[in-house]
């Protein structure tokens, strides 16, 4: 089976970010997407802590201790970028002003429910941050995640077993094996990577998939 590595997964998703989009990239694999948006497209990145126009990592020695992204890494501001407070930032998120949110996922259900903030380990303190606001608020939610867990268990399921982040929010899932679209009839495979067959992908998925149209 062909399995893309995270940078290739991010690169594939980046092809689907249109010119002129306002985009929020989640912590982890999603932030890699910014490295692969094709030349010539102007994309404005939002960070929940109050930045529109997030730029690349600063040169060593030029870091501004207040200028960080949601993952608490130093960033820069591009020309034309601006700052605002958290209430305004989440108004942008919840209010439907962002075009695309790219989020990581623990599980996605056949009807587009997302679980990405808590597992069932009660000993470990839960943390939610901006995940729920982004999932309900962005116009389009793309999930970038591996198709299965490290143990090989499916992450795309009839129903999520972990606590939900949002219900019916996911539009597309970009995995290391395929691209899937959530439709009213269920998840449809829209692209298979390399020599992967529909049957291969179905075999590691916990819900019935629809074949490419």
């Amino acid at each position: 089976m062909t399995r893309l590595e995270p940078p290739q997964m991010a690169e594939r998703l980046a092809q689907d970010i249109p010119d002129g989009s306002y985009v929020n990239l989640g912590i982890g694999m999603p932030v890699m997407v910014a490295n692969y948006v094709p030349e010539g497209r102007e994309v404005i990145y939002h960070s929940e802590n109050g930045i529109l126009g997030v730029g690349p990592t600063p040169e060593p020695g030029t870091e501004d201790p207040d200028l960080i992204n949601a993952a608490k890494q130093y960033v820069t501001l591009i020309k034309g970028g601006c700052y605002f407070d958290t209430a305004d930032s989440f108004a942008m998120m919840r209010g439907g002003h962002l075009d695309i949110a790219v989020l990581g996922g623990f599980q996605v259900s056949a009807d587009g429910n997302l679980a990405n903030w808590a597992t069932d380990n009660e000993k470990y303190p839960p943390a939610v941050g901006g995940a729920m606001d982004l999932s309900v608020g962005a116009k389009t939610v793309y999930v970038l995640m591996r198709h299965t867990t490290k143990a090989g268990e499916p992450k795309i399921l009839d129903a999520c077993t972990y606590p939900l982040t949002g219900t019916g929010v996911v539009s597309r899932i970009y995995t290391d094996l395929a691209v899937l679209e959530i439709t009213d009839e269920g998840p449809r495979v829209v692209e298979l990577f390399g020599d992967n067959s529909f049957e291969d992908v179905q075999a590691v998925t916990g819900t019935r998939l629809l074949p490419p149209a």
Partner: peptide
């Protein structure tokens, strides 16, 4: 611990 979504918090 009282946990809530960040936008709700703000």
């Amino acid at each position: 611990l009282e946990l809530m979504p960040q936008g709700t918090f703000a």
